[in-house]
Every structure is written in C-alpha cells, then in structure tokens.
Amino acid sequence: MGVKTKAPAIEQGAFFTTRLDAVLNWARKYSLFQYPFATACCGMEFMATAASHYDQARFGAEIPRFSPRQSDVLWVAGTINHKMAPIVKRVHEQMAHPKWVIAFGACASSGGFYQNYAVVQGLDRVIPVDVYIGGCPPRPEAVLDGLIALQDLIQTRGPTGHTGINPRQTKEVLLLSRQ
C-alpha cells in the first residue's frame, strides 16, 4: 500500500532512474569476497561469525578466498607483530582494486593490551584500514555490525573507502609505467 503512494511508476510497471555508481556500489557491497588473515584468538570469532549460526553469508560476504587476488576485503583478525607485518603488507598489496581492510578486534585495531617489543600498535601503522571492530574478541554481532558499516561505506563512498586510494589513479599510474 505504502509503495503505491510513494512510487506509482514502479507499480505501473514503468521504469525508474538511478546513478550507475550507486548500482555498482550496491552490487559491490553485497558480493564481498574475503581474505581471512587470522593470526590469533580473534580468528576463532571470525569462524564463529562465518559459520551457520551467525551466517555471514546472509550479508553477501560468503566465501573466504585464500588468494589475495580473488578477494575484496582483508579481515585482519588477531595480533599483528613486527615479524608478521611485511607479510600482511604484501598480502594487501597483492589484492586487486577495489579493496577494503577490516581491523578485527582490539589487537588489530590498536595493538590491544600488548605494548612491547613484538606487537605493531595498530594495523593502520602498516596498511590503511577502513573499519575497526573493537572487542577482545568482538562478539559475532559486533563483527556483523562492522561488516554492515563497511557496506554502508562502500555504498556511500564507492570503491575508495576511507583510505582514499582511487583505483582509477592506480590505473593511470599503471598505464604510464607501461608506456
């Protein structure tokens, strides 16, 4: 009933217009392929969220891809130490644009309760991060909340996310380097 008053054009089988990037972003946010970079206890919580009880697939974030080249979102779930930092950086560099990063849990977001010789004080010291999920570990509800926050980000900001890395620019750089 409400639809009839608000959008008579749809009701009559006519058409409606939108912007192409809005459609693209809508498609992007519901087909996120994920790379789970699980280094510590938070990895268990990622598994809990991905498994049937909380069923992350409902949000279009279905399959974990264990190849960075096939994934859109890098979930860094767990403590990142200085020994691991070059690896996570390399994985991030290998991902194709557009790409997003979620810092999962207190450790990945800020170093957590570790401030010592080993632990990087926040994943954003190594690679740019779009969404931070707090908690040690975050409950699956919080994880889904973070995922929805990322989807909102994709819808409103498009492929650049918070990090401001423009894939078109990268393309130009690539073209230039080929010439």
């Binding site: 200085h82 020994k83 930092a85 010592n116 740019p128």
Partner: peptide, 11 residues
C-alpha cells in the same frame, strides 16, 4: 619496554 624494531616503514 617501548623499543620496537619494525621491519616495514610505519605509517
């Protein structure tokens, strides 16, 4: 206790 020895350049 604060001394860290990063292997990549930190942002």
């Amino acid at each position: 206790i604060h001394l860290q020895q990063p292997r990549v350049e930190l942002r």
